[in-house]
C-alpha cells in the first residue's frame, strides 16, 4: 500500500539530446528533496492526448543540486509518454512527485555486475558513479543497438574507465550473460535494467546458475514486453462488457475508464494485486509483469492488468465483481 503522494510543481529548465532518440530533461522542482539515492525515480504527469498521465523515469546522475534529471527515449509506438515528454519546451511548468526508490543499491557487497540495455542505462549510470566513489569492485556491461544509441557513453568512460564495456548489437557484439554471471563473486549482486528480453535472460541464467534470488536486482516500469504496444479488445462476459484498449492505455486504465472497480498496488507489474483471470485469448498474451513466475505465465491463467496486454485481437477475462445484475451493460465507453 503506497503512501499517497503530494504533487510537486516544477519547471522544465533545459533539455539536451544525448542521442538522436534520447533526450535529457533537467527539471527544477519548487521543493527539492533532501536526498536522492542511486536507483531513485520520479513520477511525472505527462500530457498524453490532452490528458495528464503518470509516467515513471529514473533519475540520472547523483543530483544533490536540487535539480532532477531524467532521460527519455522517444518511442513512437509506445504508450505516448515519450512523445508527450518530447513535446515539452524549456520553461514549461510540470507536475512531478517526490523521488522514490524501488531499485535501491546495496553498499558494501564484495562484487557487483551492472547490466544495462539501451535506455536502461539511466538508473545504472547513477549506480556506477556511486560504486566508483566508494571504490567498490564492480563492472558495467552496456549494450545498445548502435554506437550512436549509447547515451551517456562519454561520461561513463570518463568516470569509470576500465570498469565499463560497451556492446554494440549491430556490430555483432552480444553480452555473454551466463559467462559474466559465472565470473561474479558468489556473494556479488547483479543489477539489471534493460529491454524485456535482457531481463528475462538475466533472470533465467541467474536461476539456472543457482544464485540467490535476493541478489538479483532489477527494475521494470512494465512498459516494454515481447510485442509493441497495440490496441486490443477485452470482453468481460460476467459484466456484459466489451472494452477497446488503445495502444497508449493499459488494460487496468481501460477497465477503470469503463467504470470497473479494481484494486491495485504498484501499477508496475510487481505486486499482483490487479491480477485477473484469463478465460480465453485470441492472440498471444504479452506478460510484462515480474509477479508471475515463468511457469505461471506460460499457463496463461491470469495476467497483471497494469502492465500486461494482448499482442492484438481480444482477451476474454473475468473480474471479482460478483454483483448479479451487470452494471456496465450500457454506456460502453468509446475510448
Amino acid at each position: 500500500m503506497a503512501k499517497p503522494m503530494e504533487p510537486i510543481a516544477a519547471r522544465l529548465r533545459a533539455t539536451r539530446d544525448l542521442t538522436p532518440d534520447v533526450r535529457l530533461f533537467e527539471i527544477e522542482p519548487d521543493y527539492p528533496s533532501a536526498k536522492v539515492t542511486p536507483g531513485s525515480h520520479i513520477d511525472v504527469l505527462v500530457p498524453i492526448d490532452g490528458r495528464p498521465q503518470l509516467r515513471s523515469y529514473s533519475l540520472v546522475g547523483p543530483g544533490g543540486d536540487g535539480l532532477y534529471r531524467i532521460a527519455v527515449k522517444r518511442v513512437a509506438s509506445g504508450r505516448g509518454g515519450s512523445v508527450g515528454m518530447w513535446r515539452l519546451k524549456a520553461g514549461e511548468p510540470l507536475t512531478i512527485f517526490e523521488p522514490r526508490n524501488s531499485f535501491e543499491l546495496s553498499y558494501g557487497r564484495p562484487d557487483y555486475l551492472l547490466l544495462a540495455g539501451g535506455i536502461g542505462i539511466t538508473p545504472i549510470y547513477t549506480m556506477a558513479l556511486a560504486l566508483k566513489q566508494t571504490d567498490a569492485n564492480f563492472r558495467l556491461l552496456y549494450a545498445a543497438r548502435s554506437r550512436s544509441d549509447l547515451a551517456l557513453a562519454d561520461e561513463l568512460a570518463r568516470y569509470i574507465g576500465e570498469r565499463l564495456q560497451f556492446f554494440v548489437n549491430e556490430e555483432g557484439q552480444r553480452i555473454d550473460i551466463a559467462g559474466e554471471i559465472a565470473r561474479l563473486d558468489p556473494r556479488g549482486e547483479l543489477y539489471v535494467c534493460g529491454p524485456f528480453g535482457m531481463l528475462e535472460a538475466a533472470k533465467r541464467v541467474w536461476r539456472e546458475a543457482g544464485r540467490p534470488a535476493a541478489q538479483l536486482r532489477y527494475e521494470t516500469f512494465g512498459n516494454a514486453g515481447k510485442f509493441a504496444d497495440a490496441p486490443f479488445r477485452i470482453r468481460i462476459p460476467r459484466l456484459g462488457l466489451e472494452i477497446d484498449v488503445p495502444a497508449h492505455r493499459s488494460l487496468l486504465e481501460a477497465l477503470e475508464d469503463a467504470g470497473v472497480d479494481m484494486i491495485f498496488g504498484c501499477r508496475r507489474g510487481e505486486c499482483g494485486l490487479c491480477v485477473l483471470p484469463i478465460l480465453e485469448a485470441s492472440a498471444e498474451v504479452d506478460h510484462r509483469d515480474v509477479f508471475f513466475s515463468g511457469e505461471e505465465r506460460a499457463t496463461n491463467g491470469k495476467l497483471c492488468t497494469c502492465v500486461s496486454r494482448a499482442a492484438s485481437g481480444s482477451l476474454t477475462i473475468d473480474t471479482p465483481d460478483q454483483t448479479r445484475t451487470p452494471r456496465h451493460s450500457q454506456d460502453v465507453p468509446v475510448v
Binding site: 524501488s102 531499485f103 535501491e104 534470488a213 535476493a214 536486482r217 532489477y218 527494475e219 521494470t220 504498484c266 510487481e270 505486486c271 499482483g272 515480474v290 509477479f291 508471475f292 513466475s293 511457469e295 505461471e296
Partner: peptide
Amino acid sequence: QKTINPSACVR
C-alpha cells in the same frame, strides 16, 4: 507467490 517483488527491501 512464486516470485519476489524486486523492490522489496529494508535498509
